[in-house]
Each structure stands twice: as C-alpha cells, then as structure tokens.
Simulated scan of single mutants.
Amino acid sequence: MRDIMGMMGKVKEMQAKMEKMQEEIAALEVEGKSGGGLVTVVMTGKGELKSVKIDPALFKDDDVEILEDLLVAAHKDAKDKVEAVAAEKTKAMTAGLPIPPGFKLPF
C-alpha cells in the first residue's frame, strides 16, 4: 500500500510540474524570420501571432505573393521554435519516466 501512496504523491507532483511548464510555454514569445530577415513575426507559446514586421524594401515591386509566402515561412519558423522549446522542457521533466519514444503528452 505504501508504494501506491508514494506513486500517487509522485503523480500529483508531476501534475503540478506539468501545469507550471504549460504556463511557462504559454508565456513564451519567440521570433520567426524569413527572407533573410525581411519578414519577422512574434508568436506566443500557444501559437498566437503577436506581431508582424515587414521590411519596406518588399513594397517596391507589388509582388504580394512573395510577401504572403514570406509571412507563412516566418510564422512556421516561430512555431517550430515554440515546439522545440516545449519538447525540450517536456523531455527534461519526464527524464527517467518509462514513456515510449514519440509519445506526446496531452497539452
């Protein structure tokens, strides 16, 4: 019975750590860039797009398609960075737990 109580305590401790980590990830702000820095986006850890900065040099040619592609690429860059930080934090927190490779925790 002691083992079960000890395990329940560890589960509650892990749950509290997970909630804290989720809050930290949500509070993250990362910057994604594309076009060699011509387009920059800032995104939160929840994937919310906070700001977009576009170099005025892009407005010379009225080539909207290039600008649209650069915006998508900058957003993807920022999103990839958020996911990398989240994966790193999760890996550090779950070190030593018997979790199968590739298993994603629900958050």
Rank of each mutant, 00 (worst) to 15 (best):
40 T>D: 00
27 A>G: 10
63 D>I: 01
78 A>W: 02
17 K>T: 00
51 S>G: 07
64 V>F: 00
82 V>S: 03
79 K>P: 00
46 K>H: 10
3 D>V: 10
95 A>F: 00
11 V>D: 06
15 Q>D: 07
107 F>W: 11
77 D>E: 03
33 K>I: 06
18 M>L: 15
76 K>S: 13
107 F>Y: 12
73 A>V: 04
27 A>L: 09
46 K>Y: 06
95 A>M: 03
64 V>H: 00
41 V>G: 03
11 V>M: 15
71 L>N: 04
49 L>G: 09
74 A>G: 04
26 A>N: 14
54 I>K: 05
90 T>Q: 09
86 A>R: 10
43 M>C: 10
44 T>A: 08
106 P>Q: 08
89 K>V: 10
83 E>Q: 15
64 V>W: 00
34 S>R: 07
5 M>W: 15
88 E>G: 02
106 P>V: 04
37 G>N: 10
24 E>K: 14
11 V>S: 04
86 A>F: 03
52 V>C: 13
65 E>K: 11
102 G>K: 08
42 V>R: 13
62 D>M: 09
81 K>F: 03
7 M>E: 06
57 A>S: 15
66 I>V: 14
102 G>L: 08
13 E>W: 08
43 M>V: 15
61 D>W: 04
46 K>Q: 15
51 S>K: 12
19 E>G: 11
107 F>T: 03
2 R>S: 12
79 K>I: 05
74 A>Y: 04
93 M>S: 03
26 A>E: 13
104 K>M: 14
1 M>P: 12
99 I>F: 06
82 V>E: 03
58 L>C: 10
67 L>E: 01
14 M>S: 00
56 P>Y: 11
52 V>L: 15
102 G>D: 06
68 E>H: 05
54 I>F: 09
45 G>Y: 04
89 K>L: 15
40 T>E: 08
101 P>S: 03
4 I>G: 02
107 F>K: 00
64 V>Q: 03
95 A>S: 04
